[in-house]
Design a protein around this nucleic acid. Structure first.
Length: 529
RNA sequence: GCCCCCGUAGCUCAAUUGGAUAGAGCAUCGGAUUUCUAAUCCGGUGGUUGCAGGUUCGAGUCCUGCCGGGGGCGCCA
């Protein structure tokens, strides 16, 4: 019996007996010294239906899932039967992904993230959005949604013009001509490299047209970004270009559909976003007839809607928070309200006490590639997940590099390596892996199995509440129980085959679980450390 | 001026979104290795949750005001 099913049944019983759908979280008890596995507050139920709680508890007892049910200070505390816990192991042994899999939802979800301007290398904030987005996609997938990931390229506009000009000037530089990169242009080293390549390939024949430079730079930078992301373990299902949206009829369609919510003022067309809670109305078409970024963005989202998604999820940087009300408003005006924005806050880089300073003007940024090179892909991904998405994150490069007890990634990976080494050792001693006959587990073993069981609905929780940071935390918590067990108990014991086989079975289940969970973060599970 | 995020142990952060006696890791102090990996384990010290009110059975969490740190305000993208 899966954890999510048990929770569902508890909720169903409460609803049946009270006739009301209480919003109740069934969770591990937060307080210490409580031996229950699951718990829910019953204050509201007691207040409204004082005599019904007894009936609910009686019904819960009837399910046969629980060894003990008691009400303490208004909480209903439930202790699961050991056999419920133990029975779940078989599935982990055979197929971990099945263990975590939620029931099919028949809902399509689109998660759009990173979507950085294709004008330079990706930075650490992009990396953070990347790992969070990846884990969300993974969680939706595991939880039974049909999910796609998407990256949107703003390949039009002023920034891109400046990119083209900057490249043109760099090419001049290489040819020994006089050059000047505009104030707002791009100064990074990467453009010099692109310029060098450009000259070598003799693109310089007719190259007074900015267009050529622009297209070339764009192509190269998109390639560069994709390569960085691939090294980081992030790949997208869809890549959408702003230029495609502009070429389509979507923009005119948006203007038509929003007709009832727009007005003309001083030659510009405004969208009445104030009607949707924004603090002022926003321009869709400028007085010179140009589309605003906002209008094109609405068109892009209409494109998403037309592709048949039920839920749209966007990860944006903190500089876009003011943009949320108008975008939500526009989509509501188009008749779509399953649109969520998760703000991924900034990353502050440090080396010990010292802050890593960056200057965009000089083209000095600490890039995703730098990060991968300095601390490694796995440590980077783990650390970037360790904080709630919408809180600022301090990233200490020294700490992430350090191979010590301070580094929680190694703590988790070490547990996996340990499981593997135990199995290797057992093999040498002639033990074969099998499902044990004797399923009388001792209390210390049950403790591990319980942790394994209670972590089961983690991906569902992440997909519901976007709490990606819970995964590393839960992992650390799970693994600490195992490390403690390892210290006091032996797994492989030549004089006690029964114990050995039973414990080897747990070790294998844990190993499968750790590998799967690390994999869901695209982090390696080493066999040996 | 308006908006967003943050303020919790010496440090970095949790607290299941309003639940039980606010928890971890690091640092620090003490202890564990003839043993499947010590990148580990066991124990101690450490708190007026920035301040002041309010809401209620119950507040770190919600509301109001203030203090401090960071970010954002465009017919830019």
């Amino acid at each position: 019996m899966k954890l999510s099913e048990i929770k569902k049944i508890i909720k169903k019983i409460i609803k049946e007996k009270t006739g009301e759908d209480f919003k109740i979280e069934i969770e591990e008890p937060r307080a210490k010294n409580i031996s229950a596995d699951l718990s829910f507050p019953a204050f509201e139920i007691l207040k409204k239906y004082k005599n019904k709680l007894e009936i609910i508890i009686k019904e819960l007892k009837g399910t046969g899932f629980f060894e003990k049910i008691e009400t303490v200070l208004g909480f209903v505390n439930l202790k699961l039967k050991n056999e419920i816990l133990i029975n779940s192991l078989g599935l982990i042994y055979r197929d971990v992904s099945e263990y975590f899999r939620g029931e099919k939802k028949n809902k399509r979800v689109l998660v759009e993230y990173i979507s950085a301007n294709p004008t330079g290398p990706l930075n650490v904030a992009n990396a953070r959005a990347g790992v969070i987005g990846d884990l969300l996609v993974e969680s939706f997938n595991i939880s039974g949604f049909d999910v796609d990931s998407e990256y949107y390229y703003n390949d039009c506009g002023k920034q891109i013009e400046l990119l083209g000009i900057s490249l043109r000037e760099r090419v001049k530089e290489i040819k020994g001509e006089e050059f000047k990169i505009p104030e707002e242009g791009y100064y990074g080293e990467y453009l010099k490299n692109i310029a060098r390549e450009y000259v070598e390939r003799r693109y310089n024949v007719l190259s007074f047209i900015v267009e050529n430079y622009k297209d070339y730079a764009l192509k190269k930078i998109v390639e560069m970004q994709k390569k960085s992301l691939k090294n980081f373990g992030t790949e997208f299902k869809n890549y959408i270009y702003e230029s495609e949206i502009r070429k389509s009829t979507l923009i005119r369609e948006v203007l038509k559909k929003l007709e009832n919510y727009t007005y003309k003022k001083e030659g510009a067309i405004y969208f009445k976003s104030t009607e949707f809670g924004d603090d002022k109305d926003r321009v869709l078409m400028k007085s010179d007839g140009e589309y605003t970024y906002f209008l094109v963005d609405i068109a892009y989202h209409l494109h998403k809607i037309k592709r048949g998604y039920d839920y749209l999820i966007n990860l944006w940087g903190p500089d876009h928070h003011g943009y949320i009300p108008r975008m939500k408003g526009a989509l509501r005006a188009l008749g779509f309200d399953k649109f969520e924005v998760l703000i991924v806050q900034q990353v502050n880089l440090r080396r010990g006490k010292e802050r890593v300073r960056m200057s965009k003007r000089k083209g000095e940024i600490y890039s995703l590639d730098d990060l991968i090179k300095e601390v490694g892909k796995d440590a980077a991904r783990f650390f970037l997940l360790l904080r709630a998405p919408s809180t600022p994150l301090d990233f200490d490069l020294e700490l992430a590099k350090k191979m010590s007890q301070e580094n929680p990634l190694y703590y988790v990976q070490y547990a996996h390596a340990r499981c593997n080494q135990i199995e290797e050792f057992a093999k040498k001693k002639g033990f074969n892996m099998e499902i044990p006959e004797n399923i009388k587990f001792d209390p210390k073993e049950i403790e591990i199995i319980k942790k394994i069981y209670l972590i089961q609905d983690i991906y569902e929780k992440i997909s519901e509440k976007f709490v990606t940071h819970l995964l590393p935390f839960k992992l650390i918590n799970l693994v600490s129980v195992f490390h403690s067990f390892y210290q006091s108990e032996r797994v492989v014991d030549e004089n006690n085959a029964e114990n050995t086989l039973r414990r080897l079975f747990i070790v294998r289940c844990l190993k499968n679980l750790l590998k799967f969970m690390l994999g869901s973060m695209k982090i390696k599970a080493p066999e040996k450390m």
